[in-house]
Protein backbone atom coordinates (compact mmCIF):
# COMPACT_ATOMS: atom_id res chain seq x y z
CA UNK A 1 0.00 0.00 0.00
CA UNK A 2 2.82 2.34 0.71
CA UNK A 3 3.60 3.97 -2.61
CA UNK A 4 6.74 5.55 -1.27
CA UNK A 5 8.48 2.24 -1.05
CA UNK A 6 11.47 2.35 -3.31
CA UNK A 7 10.74 0.45 -6.46
CA UNK A 8 12.58 -2.76 -5.90
CA UNK A 9 13.79 -4.46 -9.05
CA UNK A 10 11.32 -7.16 -9.98
CA UNK A 11 13.24 -9.93 -8.30
CA UNK A 12 10.34 -11.40 -6.41
CA UNK A 13 8.59 -13.34 -9.10
CA UNK A 14 11.39 -13.66 -11.57
CA UNK A 15 13.47 -15.67 -9.11
CA UNK A 16 11.25 -18.68 -9.38
CA UNK A 17 12.16 -19.22 -13.01
CA UNK A 18 12.99 -22.83 -13.75
CA UNK A 19 11.64 -24.37 -10.57
CA UNK A 20 8.13 -25.18 -11.61
CA UNK A 21 6.99 -26.40 -15.01
CA UNK A 22 4.73 -23.40 -15.55
CA UNK A 23 7.26 -20.88 -14.32
CA UNK A 24 7.53 -19.19 -17.71
CA UNK A 25 4.21 -17.61 -16.84
CA UNK A 26 5.64 -16.03 -13.68
CA UNK A 27 5.41 -12.29 -14.12
CA UNK A 28 3.87 -12.79 -17.52
CA UNK A 29 0.25 -13.04 -16.52
CA UNK A 30 -0.16 -9.69 -18.20
CA UNK A 31 -0.04 -11.54 -21.53
CA UNK A 32 -3.69 -12.16 -20.86
CA UNK A 33 -4.31 -8.41 -20.90
CA UNK A 34 -2.52 -8.01 -24.23
CA UNK A 35 -4.45 -10.87 -25.78
CA UNK A 36 -7.68 -9.47 -24.40
CA UNK A 37 -6.96 -6.07 -25.95
CA UNK A 38 -6.18 -7.70 -29.30
CA UNK A 39 -9.40 -9.68 -28.99
CA UNK A 40 -11.50 -6.62 -28.25
CA UNK A 41 -9.84 -4.78 -31.13
CA UNK A 42 -10.50 -7.62 -33.53
CA UNK A 43 -14.08 -7.88 -32.36
CA UNK A 44 -14.68 -4.15 -32.82
CA UNK A 45 -13.06 -4.32 -36.26
CA UNK A 46 -15.32 -7.15 -37.37
CA UNK A 47 -18.34 -5.31 -36.01
CA UNK A 48 -17.25 -2.20 -37.89
CA UNK A 49 -16.91 -4.11 -41.16
CA UNK A 50 -20.35 -5.68 -40.86
CA UNK A 51 -21.98 -2.50 -39.57
CA UNK A 52 -25.20 -1.50 -41.24
CA UNK A 53 -24.77 2.09 -42.40
CA UNK A 54 -27.88 4.05 -43.40
CA UNK A 55 -27.54 5.46 -46.94
CA UNK A 56 -28.43 8.96 -45.88
CA UNK A 57 -25.09 9.63 -44.24
CA UNK A 58 -22.79 11.97 -46.07
CA UNK A 59 -19.14 12.72 -45.66
CA UNK A 60 -17.01 10.49 -43.46
CA UNK A 61 -19.40 7.94 -42.04
CA UNK A 62 -19.82 6.19 -38.71
CA UNK A 63 -17.16 3.61 -39.58
CA UNK A 64 -14.14 5.88 -39.82
CA UNK A 65 -13.51 6.39 -36.11
CA UNK A 66 -14.26 2.79 -35.03
CA UNK A 67 -11.94 1.58 -37.76
CA UNK A 68 -9.10 3.76 -36.50
CA UNK A 69 -9.64 2.83 -32.86
CA UNK A 70 -9.96 -0.92 -33.41
CA UNK A 71 -6.84 -0.98 -35.59
CA UNK A 72 -4.92 0.93 -32.93
CA UNK A 73 -6.14 -1.51 -30.28
CA UNK A 74 -4.82 -4.55 -32.13
CA UNK A 75 -1.42 -2.88 -32.60
CA UNK A 76 -1.21 -1.79 -28.96
CA UNK A 77 -2.26 -5.20 -27.68
CA UNK A 78 0.46 -6.79 -29.79
CA UNK A 79 3.01 -4.29 -28.48
CA UNK A 80 2.03 -5.11 -24.91
CA UNK A 81 2.40 -8.83 -25.57
CA UNK A 82 5.83 -8.18 -27.04
CA UNK A 83 6.85 -6.08 -24.03
CA UNK A 84 5.70 -8.68 -21.52
CA UNK A 85 7.42 -11.53 -23.37
CA UNK A 86 10.68 -9.63 -23.49
CA UNK A 87 10.55 -8.20 -20.00
CA UNK A 88 8.29 -10.06 -17.56
CA UNK A 89 6.77 -8.32 -14.54
CA UNK A 90 6.83 -4.90 -16.06
CA UNK A 91 4.76 -3.51 -13.25
CA UNK A 92 7.51 -3.53 -10.64
CA UNK A 93 5.93 -1.09 -8.25
CA UNK A 94 2.80 -3.17 -7.91
CA UNK A 95 4.45 -6.53 -7.80
CA UNK A 96 7.39 -5.33 -5.73
CA UNK A 97 5.42 -3.94 -2.85
CA UNK A 98 2.90 -6.70 -3.07
CA UNK A 99 5.38 -9.50 -2.75
CA UNK A 100 7.15 -7.60 0.00
CA UNK A 101 3.89 -7.51 1.89
CA UNK A 102 3.49 -11.21 1.41
CA UNK A 103 6.98 -11.87 2.66
CA UNK A 104 6.29 -9.79 5.74
CA UNK A 105 4.11 -12.73 6.54
CA UNK A 106 1.27 -10.98 8.26
CA UNK A 107 -1.59 -12.88 6.75
CA UNK A 108 -4.53 -11.65 8.69
CA UNK A 109 -6.41 -14.81 9.41
CA UNK A 110 -9.95 -14.94 8.30
CA UNK A 111 -11.68 -18.19 9.13
CA UNK A 112 -9.49 -20.02 6.65
CA UNK A 113 -5.87 -18.97 6.82
CA UNK A 114 -4.37 -21.78 4.82
CA UNK A 115 -6.24 -20.77 1.70
CA UNK A 116 -4.50 -17.42 1.69
CA UNK A 117 -1.11 -18.57 2.92
CA UNK A 118 1.65 -17.03 0.83
CA UNK A 119 3.47 -20.32 0.33
CA UNK A 120 0.59 -21.91 -1.46
CA UNK A 121 -0.04 -18.96 -3.70
CA UNK A 122 3.59 -18.62 -4.57
CA UNK A 123 3.89 -22.35 -5.14
CA UNK A 124 2.10 -21.80 -8.39
CA UNK A 125 -1.35 -23.20 -7.74
CA UNK A 126 -2.52 -20.55 -10.18
CA UNK A 127 -0.56 -20.82 -13.35
CA UNK A 128 -1.13 -17.21 -14.28
CA UNK A 129 1.35 -16.25 -11.59
CA UNK A 130 -1.14 -14.19 -9.69
CA UNK A 131 -0.61 -12.87 -6.20
CA UNK A 132 -4.18 -11.73 -5.92
CA UNK A 133 -6.50 -13.12 -3.33
CA UNK A 134 -9.12 -14.52 -5.65
CA UNK A 135 -11.22 -15.86 -2.82
CA UNK A 136 -12.00 -12.43 -1.42
CA UNK A 137 -12.48 -10.97 -4.90
CA UNK A 138 -14.85 -13.81 -5.72
CA UNK A 139 -16.90 -13.20 -2.60
CA UNK A 140 -17.26 -9.50 -3.38
CA UNK A 141 -18.23 -10.30 -6.96
CA UNK A 142 -20.75 -12.88 -5.80
CA UNK A 143 -22.33 -10.30 -3.51
CA UNK A 144 -22.69 -7.81 -6.39
CA UNK A 145 -24.11 -10.47 -8.72
CA UNK A 146 -26.58 -11.57 -6.05
CA UNK A 147 -27.62 -7.95 -5.58
CA UNK A 148 -28.18 -7.55 -9.32
CA UNK A 149 -30.36 -10.66 -9.43
CA UNK A 150 -32.30 -9.93 -6.25
CA UNK A 151 -32.82 -6.17 -6.40
CA UNK A 152 -36.16 -6.26 -8.16
CA UNK A 153 -37.71 -9.29 -6.46
CA UNK A 154 -36.48 -8.47 -2.93
CA UNK A 155 -36.28 -4.70 -3.01
CA UNK A 156 -33.46 -2.37 -1.97
CA UNK A 157 -33.82 -2.80 1.79
CA UNK A 158 -33.04 -6.53 1.76
CA UNK A 159 -30.79 -6.82 -1.30
CA UNK A 160 -28.83 -3.72 -0.32
CA UNK A 161 -28.29 -5.16 3.15
CA UNK A 162 -27.23 -8.45 1.60
CA UNK A 163 -24.70 -6.67 -0.61
CA UNK A 164 -23.27 -4.75 2.34
CA UNK A 165 -23.12 -7.92 4.41
CA UNK A 166 -21.44 -9.89 1.63
CA UNK A 167 -18.71 -7.33 1.09
CA UNK A 168 -18.04 -6.72 4.78
CA UNK A 169 -17.90 -10.48 5.34
CA UNK A 170 -15.43 -10.91 2.47
CA UNK A 171 -13.29 -8.14 3.94
CA UNK A 172 -12.96 -10.06 7.19
CA UNK A 173 -16.11 -9.67 9.28
CA UNK A 174 -16.34 -12.24 12.05
CA UNK A 175 -19.66 -11.77 13.88
CA UNK A 176 -22.49 -12.73 11.52
CA UNK A 177 -25.35 -11.29 13.57
CA UNK A 178 -23.62 -8.01 14.27
CA UNK A 179 -22.55 -7.56 10.65
CA UNK A 180 -26.07 -8.34 9.48
CA UNK A 181 -27.47 -5.72 11.84
CA UNK A 182 -24.98 -3.12 10.57
CA UNK A 183 -25.94 -4.03 7.00
CA UNK A 184 -29.65 -3.57 7.70
CA UNK A 185 -29.04 -0.23 9.36
CA UNK A 186 -27.03 0.85 6.31
CA UNK A 187 -29.69 -0.07 3.78
CA UNK A 188 -32.41 1.46 5.92
CA UNK A 189 -30.53 4.75 6.30
CA UNK A 190 -29.90 4.88 2.55
CA UNK A 191 -33.56 4.17 1.90
CA UNK A 192 -34.59 6.99 4.22
CA UNK A 193 -32.04 9.49 2.94
CA UNK A 194 -32.42 8.91 -0.77
CA UNK A 195 -35.99 7.77 -1.20
CA UNK A 196 -37.56 10.08 1.34
CA UNK A 197 -34.94 12.83 1.17
CA UNK A 198 -33.80 13.06 -2.45
CA UNK A 199 -36.72 11.39 -4.17
CA UNK A 200 -34.94 8.44 -5.78
CA UNK A 201 -37.17 5.60 -6.85
CA UNK A 202 -35.79 2.39 -5.38
CA UNK A 203 -37.63 -0.90 -5.77
CA UNK A 204 -39.39 -1.94 -2.60
CA UNK A 205 -39.84 -5.59 -3.64
CA UNK A 206 -41.54 -8.05 -1.33
CA UNK A 207 -41.59 -5.53 1.48
CA UNK A 208 -43.58 -3.19 -0.73
CA UNK A 209 -46.78 -3.57 1.25
CA UNK A 210 -45.10 -2.83 4.54
CA UNK A 211 -43.31 0.36 3.59
Amino acid sequence: MNPLRESAPPVSSGDATGHTPDSWWRGRSELFVGVLVIGIGAFLASQTLTMHVPDTSTGPGPRLFPGLVSGLMVVLGALLVLQVVRRPTTAPQEEGSESADVVDGSVEGSEDTSATAPAEVRGGSEHTGSHSDWRTVGMVLAAVVAFTLLLQPLGWLLSGALLFFGVSWAFGGKRPLFEAAVALVYSAVVQLAFVAGLGLNLPSGILGGLL
Binding site: L163, F165, F171, G172, F194
Partner: peptide, 24 residues
Amino acid sequence: PKRYLYAGITGFAALGVYASSYAI
Protein backbone atom coordinates in the same frame (compact mmCIF):
# COMPACT_ATOMS: atom_id res chain seq x y z
CA PRO B 1 -13.12 -0.50 9.79
CA LYS B 2 -12.18 -1.09 6.16
CA ARG B 3 -14.92 -3.67 5.70
CA TYR B 4 -17.65 -1.14 6.45
CA LEU B 5 -16.01 1.52 4.34
CA TYR B 6 -15.77 -0.69 1.26
CA ALA B 7 -19.13 -2.36 1.84
CA GLY B 8 -20.66 1.09 2.01
CA ILE B 9 -18.92 2.17 -1.19
CA THR B 10 -20.07 -0.98 -3.01
CA GLY B 11 -23.64 -0.42 -1.89
CA PHE B 12 -23.50 3.19 -2.96
CA ALA B 13 -22.00 2.28 -6.32
CA ALA B 14 -24.76 -0.22 -7.07
CA LEU B 15 -27.42 2.19 -5.85
CA GLY B 16 -26.09 5.06 -7.92
CA VAL B 17 -25.83 3.08 -11.13
CA TYR B 18 -29.32 1.70 -10.71
CA ALA B 19 -30.76 5.10 -9.81
CA SER B 20 -29.22 6.77 -12.87
CA SER B 21 -31.21 4.61 -15.30
CA TYR B 22 -33.45 2.22 -13.34
CA ALA B 23 -32.16 -0.60 -15.54
CA ILE B 24 -30.78 -3.91 -14.28
